[in-house]
Amino acid sequence: MLEGKFEESSLMKKVVDAIKDSVKLCNFNCTEHGVTVQAVDDSRVLLISLLIGEASFEEYRCDRNITLGIDLESFNKIIKNGNSSDFLTLIAEDSPDNVLIIFEDKKKDRVSEYSLKLMDLDSDFLQIDDMEFDATITMPSSEFAKITRDLKTLSESLQIIVTKENVKFSSDGDFGTGNVVLKGFVDMDKPDESIKIDMARPINLTFGAKYIADIVKGTSLSESVTIKLADKSPALFEYKLPSGFLRFYLAPKFDE
């Protein structure tokens, strides 16, 4: 049996918001360590890897591994009904046909209970070994979201170029070009505002802008985002959770 209670429903709301536009159906795999999701978008360009660690829950119990096949659009309709500050509890039997979603306000004078039908989904698990990256950038997630939105207006591709001194985001479109250059810096008072660039080898990669625009829907999960890049390899975009992470692996574009 699964019983997981969040101190606030806001975490689950943000997670669903972050992934629902990339994937529609996915398995939530529940183990004693927490909840994981691995899913790939329909075009097979973007892979999502989510871990909501046991410590993200106020109370968590999962005796046996349980798979919840969830339609995220339906789940989102229900999860939106809770107030962000409500307790959120997920309950499922060992071989469940549905999952119970319970919201309780903190004064305990209102309890809302919903049941979501589960689906039997094919799981197609990809093996992601520890990758070696040539460059790692950590920056404020809101700044990365703005750069993505701004440059996406010019082109369907977004180029990321990392040199020793800086990182350049660049787009080249029909009516013009644009780029944003960031240098590393440390903000002692607000560490989350810092920009950290670690580079072992220079990087020049191009990605589909629409996929990055989907990735930045994770912005509300974390003050900062970490971008890991390697030549001719998928990029990793990571938003840290209180215990766990939401990772996006994005396949690059190459010259024909």
Partner: peptide, 14 residues
Amino acid sequence: KKQQTTINEFFPRD
């Protein structure tokens, strides 16, 4: 013109 790759080209199925 750049060609989009897919994630399957990099990560094998388990």
